[in-house]
Write a protein that binds this DNA or RNA. Structure first.
Lengths: 213, 213
DNA sequence: TTTAAATTGAACGCGGTCGTTCAATTTAGT
DNA sequence: ACTAAATTGAACGACCGCGTTCAATTTAAA
């Protein structure tokens, strides 16, 4: 997951038609890879879905592994929005936590995200770097955002915590619970917006009970 | 995951040599499947690892999918020990919860289990039944055991909970946290026995704080 | 010992996949 | 219009994998 080789290629692809095709390839590859996995997907199927010649794929992405890595990178980019929120200073901690909790619930219940979770872990055996890349840009980033948020409140004396890392992890755990597990294994869980809010509040209440002074 | 076709075949395999070979095939298949996934594994590689002819595999297991299903069934059987404990009545709730928490931590940190988690979800797309089968025999069974345990304490008035399902889920979430996620994506987390005990106690304390009367 | 089941290696058919080559065509920037 | 890059289809080579067939051998139950 290191290099920027393909990005360089993409820069050279001034032509809009090329950029359009590259985008279509990446979109098609995302669907194929996140449905059938790496070895279960074929370049020809991706080419067909992208309505593009197989040679074109090999032109822009040298190899299947490279294409896969680019898809992962793109997906990680899409997922890396802050779930905690920016304007956190104007709101109370409780409001901020509920906001973050609802965001997290929305994020993990997206079909795209579920399919991503299904496939990615399986590829760790083939290439551990994709696992580390995802962890850094996904869960670890979220945890850090939360820690930053909690630190402010602790310094203000609003909450009690001798271990912000553990506190942040507890929060995420209480919010998500086992939902992601069941989703990953095919359980059809659907929460309406009020249900998500209810769950978010329940998690925040529990967490604040643990961390009250 | 329904049938018992192969089990019937296994019963017919009176000969110890056959049983030994079937066991070796299953063991080899487990390693291959849980390392390279379904489509990434080849029957020939499994045969080689099991030191068995390819024809023998096709003799006992009609197809690759069938073999995979048998491996999953066997793994689920191995994982289905009660983590909560049987002699729960002689101990306090707190002791029981700590015991369960340590068991859970030990379980999810086994290499076998991690590899299983890496691969299984990816196969849900190919065959949703394996996902449902695992959920029923794994997480759902554990949750039910916990609920039974909690119900006793609630009826005795030791704890407060208006939703035992949610309470049990919270407990599991607090214990496991994000450990399984990081393990699945290749992070090398090692906890010594005291560290596990420390984490278990921390989770139980938090949970009991939420559920005190 | 008789006999039926189990096991083996080798080969086969069939289909699929990765990645390449090449000549021909289309595209778009200058 | 010129030109260089992009795209395409078709074919290819090399390999792999599933599942089958078959004749020959080993095993072990009765």
């Amino acid at each position: 997951m290191e290099n920027t080789e393909v990005d360089i290629l993409k820069e050279r692809a001034d032509r809009p038609s090329s950029q359009r095709k590259i985008a279509k390839i990446l979109a098609a590859a995302r669907i194929e890879f996140f449905t059938s996995g790496f070895s279960g997907s074929s370049i020809e199927a991706i080419a067909a879905r992208a309505e593009v010649s197989k040679v074109t794929i090999y032109h822009w992405f040298k190899t299947k592994e490279n294409l896969f890595a680019e898809v992962v990178k793109a997906q990680c980019r899409d997922m890396s929005e802050s779930l905690v929120g920016e304007n956190s200073k104007t709101r109370s901690l409780r409001e901020n936590l509920i906001f973050a909790a609802e965001n997290m619930l929305n994020a993990i219940m997206q079909e795209d995200r579920i399919r991503f979770d299904r496939i990615m872990a399986a590829e760790v055996n083939r290439d551990p770097k994709v696992g580390a890349y995802f962890l850094d840009n996904g869960p670890r980033a979220l945890l850090q955002n939360l820690i930053d948020l909690l630190k402010i409140s602790r310094d203000k004396g609003e909450i009690q915590s001798d271990n912000l890392i553990s506190s942040a992890e507890m929060f995420v755990s209480l919010v998500i619970g086992r939902i992601d597990l069941f989703l990953r294994y095919g359980e059809k869980i659907k929460l309406t917006t009020p249900q998500k809010r209810e769950r978010a509040k329940r998690a925040v209440d529990a967490w604040m009970l643990i961390h009250q002074k």
